[in-house]
Amino acid sequence: MRRPKGSIAVLVVAVIVVFALNFPVYWMFVQSITAESMFTERPSLLPKDPSLNAFKRICEAKPIGQWFVNTLIVAVGTVALSMPLAAGAAFSLSRYKTTLNSVTGLAILGTQMLSASLLAIPIYVLFRRTGLHDKLGGLIVANTAFTLPMSIWVLKGFFDAIPKELDEAAMIDGCTVGQMIWQVIMPLVLPGMVAVSIFAFILAWDEFFFARTLVSSQGNWVLSVGLSSFREEFTINWSDMMAAAVLFTIPPIVLFMFIQKHLVSGLTGGAVKG
């Protein structure tokens, strides 16, 4: 592919912008490795006598591995459950203008409007009755309910952009509705699918409210609850907390880079030709 002139200049600008926006992340990292007291009036920008002690400590003292596995199950589960549901609903909203759909479309947004503190007790009661309380599966269901509206509406935007003639042609060719969505339309909305699956993944990865109210057993802790445990009744383990936060930031970012590289570029190329 021909690179436009000035791509290096763009790179420089992009690097500056991205790094400036990430200063707090950098600072968090510094706090996890520096030996300098946090009570320094003019803290130095570079870490002093950096060491990985905090990382070692948390790996020994806290069940980081278990938090990681639990969080991964919840995040992957949320993506896996919400993507098919969102794609189906979005397609329906985009293509079929029935009364049911226009009502449902707005009602979906309505589910996002109640303060979390009021949801807590009813959802807790609901989950106890259905056996979802204190289960990772329960967190998957709860997170899915809260990622769906965004996912559905964003995907609907992508479906809207695809000419209807395409599905009609597919149907005339003898595809079923399922085949038509899966084989013809899906590849075209892949950028959208990637965007909303990242959205769902990150939301579930970092979710704190359900995680702390709907789970009791320590064996079911996810990272957000684990992180909050670094603040004890009278003390706080500052550098340990920062170290844990740094560790738990890596997976979603790696995942996104991977998807970017292997999926989007290849498939949008296809979409253009389609």
Partner: peptide, 14 residues
Amino acid sequence: MATLLIALVMAPIG
């Protein structure tokens, strides 16, 4: 995918 999902949701991890 569906099997995996059902397994996840129903798994009584506790």
